[in-house]
Simulated assay, not measured.
Amino acid sequence: MEVTVTPTEDRSIIIALRLEGGAAFIVATAAYAALAEGWWLYAITALLPDVSAAGYLAGPRVGARAYNIAHSYVTPFFFGLIAWLSEPALLPVAAVWVAHIGIDRLLGYGLKSEQGFKFTHLGRIGRERFEDDRE
Rank of each mutant, 00 (worst) to 15 (best):
W84L: 15
R11F: 09
A46F: 15
L48H: 08
H100Y: 04
A30P: 00
R124H: 05
L17P: 02
G59L: 01
V74N: 01
T6H: 13
A58N: 04
F130R: 12
Y73A: 13
P7H: 03
A54T: 00
E114G: 11
T45L: 14
F79C: 12
A53R: 07
I15N: 13
A94I: 09
G63N: 06
H121D: 12
A70G: 07
T29Q: 01
G116A: 13
S72A: 14
I14M: 03
P88D: 02
S86W: 09
A58D: 06
A16N: 02
I82E: 05
K118M: 05
L48Y: 07
R65L: 12
E9M: 10
S113Y: 14
Y32S: 06
R129V: 04
E131F: 06
A58C: 08
L85A: 13
Y73I: 12
R124P: 00
G110L: 03
D50H: 12
E37N: 09
F78R: 14
L19Q: 06
A46P: 08
G38Y: 05
G59Q: 08
I15W: 10
A31C: 09
T8I: 08
R11D: 14
Y42T: 00
G63E: 09
T8S: 14
I69D: 03
T4R: 11
E37Y: 01
V27L: 09
A95W: 11
A83V: 05
I14P: 04
A70E: 13
A36L: 08
Y73Q: 04
Y67A: 07
G21N: 06
V3A: 11
A16R: 14
T45H: 08
G59P: 08
T4G: 00
L91W: 11
S86N: 01
R134L: 10
I44K: 02
K118L: 10
I26S: 01
L35H: 06
L91N: 06
R18N: 05
D132L: 10
L47E: 02
Y67D: 11
V51R: 08
G126H: 09
V5F: 13
G116E: 12
T6W: 09
S52Q: 07
H100G: 09
I44Y: 00
Q115V: 04
G59I: 02
I13C: 00
L41V: 15
G21W: 09
L41S: 11
D133P: 00
H100M: 02
R11A: 12
I82M: 07
G80T: 05
A33C: 01
Y109Q: 06
D10L: 11
A16I: 03
A99M: 13
A83C: 11
I125A: 00
A70V: 10
L90W: 11
S72V: 05
R18M: 15
Y73W: 07
I101A: 03
L122G: 10
A16P: 00
I26E: 00
Y42I: 01
F78Y: 13
E87Q: 07
R61C: 00
T75F: 11
G38C: 11
S72K: 03
E20T: 11
A94S: 13
